[in-house]
Design a protein around this nucleic acid. Structure first.
Length: 528
RNA sequence: GGCCCCAUCGUCUAGUGGCCUAGGACAUAGGAUUUUCAGUCCUGUAACACGGGUUCAAAUCCCGUUGGGGUCACCA
């Protein structure tokens, strides 16, 4: 058996689609599982789109996830070039072969004529079939038209009496009746190839053994099959995997209308919200520029590649009836096409988040610090040169935060540990509830500040002793003071343990913040 | 509309004729732990689309119905 060669062939669109990434992943997995090669080919036959800028984000997504390619952009390979726009000679040659053998023909019908045919068929409620008028031309007439520079396209001549079929690796036997298939245009008048044609020529030249792609390509398959046969190329094995769906069960799409629908979805809405909270703080735009349809979103917002890879692997594939958390290494070892599910699979943000929770829990403190620091820096909460002291402070904060940090960017929501005391903002509702409404809040807080002022050992354990014995002496409930205390030093109703918080902030800051709170309470009972 | 694909809890899935009174995960509900939030630990709710066959036996095989989806370009 020959070496397995798979490919992913994105067209440069300026971003990497999450669904496309899943397809790429499955191709990569199958190649690696078999010790074969994974090839990146750039389908840029559509000349309108610009290349360099548009390709960057795609390669970046592969790099971020750690999916390497054996041949393709930047690395080259023995079948270079890997850009379709640079492979026109191959298409031209293949086309020539087809023309010579009579399996393709020049179609001189102007687009308007075809459009009219189509409209007529539509009106008659008939299935449109291209009429092949150019086939009636004699050889001399064809020569004449060419000499006159009449524009023409080249079409494959479909044998309308035939049937084509494949044994798809995930779908089994699928058959099509060629009598229903129009002669596909394979070359435009300007000599540029169409997708179905270029793909076949390239897949053959690049010796692709397995074409693994999303099921929306199933309907392209008969055309490509006929092309493989007409060119006398060996057919690759096909595997049409289910597409990645959104919450509505439809193919997840980059179209603006679809993205807006996602934004309104409860679960995806959360993801958009995260983008809008985080991205502006780190100078990366907002959900308008980076959204959950794009792989870049997950990186920007602080997901781990492991979590995305894990989530994508489980979309349409499973190892067994129990295993959920899987490393790329594990999946690579166990991945087989026969375990790919046939039905489309909806991407679930919650499940992605839960994979993220798991993977972040496997990280060491140092690793967490490394990945959180960039967010702090970009948001301006700390300066670019991070001192050892700052690192250790962040380490303590992350330890105190423990499971509260799910995404690396979550650290940004604990700005109270970084802002100057005078800039601390208070949650208005909680301020009322914990400080204004309870009559004894202010006096108790004032009393406890004095206790803190005389406390020497400012570590969590000692502070807990101090507070608890004071509470006992004063004959109050712990809840009477602790909520007010939390509000006054953090401005928020929730956060890490109270005593860890006090320790982290340190005596100085705690006293200043409590003092500031008391001042506000004395003045107008409102932080605003 | 034509062609093609698909159909197990809300979602991702296990299931390849008997191990299924259908298993796991996410989500969800309740409880426990707790100074808050997060977490953690229990417990629970929740699915074989429907109708016919085949068979001693069907979520599993066949046919049909219904429903959903993909695609119908000189886009990729």
């Amino acid at each position: 058996m020959s070496v397995v060669r798979t490919r992913f062939a994105p067209s440069p669109t300026g971003y990497m689609h999450i669904g496309g990434m899943r397809t790429a992943l499955f191709n990569w997995l199958w190649a690696r599982h078999n010790g074969g090669q994974f090839i990146l080919r750039i389908d840029d036959t559509d000349q309108e789109r610009n290349n360099d800028e548009a390709l960057g984000p795609i390669l970046a997504a592969f790099r971020w996830l750690g999916l390497d390619w054996d041949e393709g952009p930047e690395v080259g390979g023995e079948f270079a070039p890997y850009f379709q726009s640079q492979r026109t000679e191959f298409y031209r040659a293949a086309c020539e072969t087809l023309l010579k053998s009579g399996k393709a023909y020049r179609d001189f019908d102007p687009p308007e004529a075809i459009k009219a045919d189509r409209e007529q068929a539509d009106k008659d409620k008939q299935q449109y079939m291209n009429v092949r008028r150019s086939l009636d031309l004699s050889e001399a007439e064809v020569e004449q038209l060419i000499a006159e520079n009449q524009p023409y396209v080249i079409r494959l001549l479909v044998d309308r009496t035939a049937k084509v079929s494949i044994t798809d690796q995930v779908r089994g036997d699928v058959e099509w009746d060629c009598s229903l298939i129009n002669d596909p245009v394979i070359m435009r008048a300007d000599g540029s190839p169409l997708y179905n044609f270029a793909t076949v020529v390239d897949d053959a030249h690049l010796k692709i053994t397995h074409v693994i792609r999303a099921e929306e390509h199933l309907s392209n398959t008969p055309t490509q099959l006929m092309l493989f046969d007409a060119l006398e190329y060996e057919r690759p094995v096909f595997a049409h995997i289910p597409f990645v769906a959104g919450p509505d069960g439809k193919k997840i799409s980059k179209r603006e209308k679809y993205v807006e629908k996602l934004r309104k979805d409860a679960k995806f809405g959360k993801l958009f919200q995260i983008a809008d909270d985080v991205l502006p703080q780190i100078g990366m735009g907002s959900s308008e520029t980076i959204n959950p349809v794009m792989v870049a979103y997950y990186e920007a917002v602080g997901f781990m590649p492991e979590a995305i890879l894990n989530g994508l692997s489980r979309l349409g594939w499973s190892f067994d009836d129990k295993t959920e958390q899987m490393s790329l290494e594990f999946v690579t070892k166990e991945f087989t096409l026969d375990r790919v599910v046939k039905a489309s699979a909806a991407l679930d943000p919650d499940k992605l988040l839960s994979f993220q929770e798991y993977w972040i829990s496997t990280l060491s403190l140092e690793e967490k610090i490394d990945r959180c620091v960039p967010y702090l820096v970009k948001s301006g909460m700390i300066s670019e040169e991070v001192t050892d002291q700052e690192r250790s402070y962040i380490g303590k904060l992350l330890t105190a935060l423990s499971e509260r940090i799910k995404l690396f960017s979550d650290v940004l929501s604990y700005d109270e540990f970084f802002v100057p005391d005078e800039d601390l903002e208070y949650d208005e509702k909680a301020f009322q509830k914990r400080l204004v409404k309870p009559e004894n809040a202010a006096p108790l807080l004032a009393q406890f500040r004095d206790v803190l002022a005389t406390t020497e050992a400012f570590d969590a354990a000692s502070l807990e002793d101090v507070l608890k014995s004071w509470v006992e002496e004063a004959g109050i409930n712990i809840g009477d003071i602790i909520h007010a205390l939390r509000m006054s030093v953090t401005g928020k109703p929730a956060g890490p343990g109270m005593f860890e918080t006090l320790e982290l902030l340190g005596k100085e800051r705690c006293l200043v913040r409590i003092g500031r709170t008391l001042e506000i309470l004395n003045n107008n009972s409102s932080p605003a």
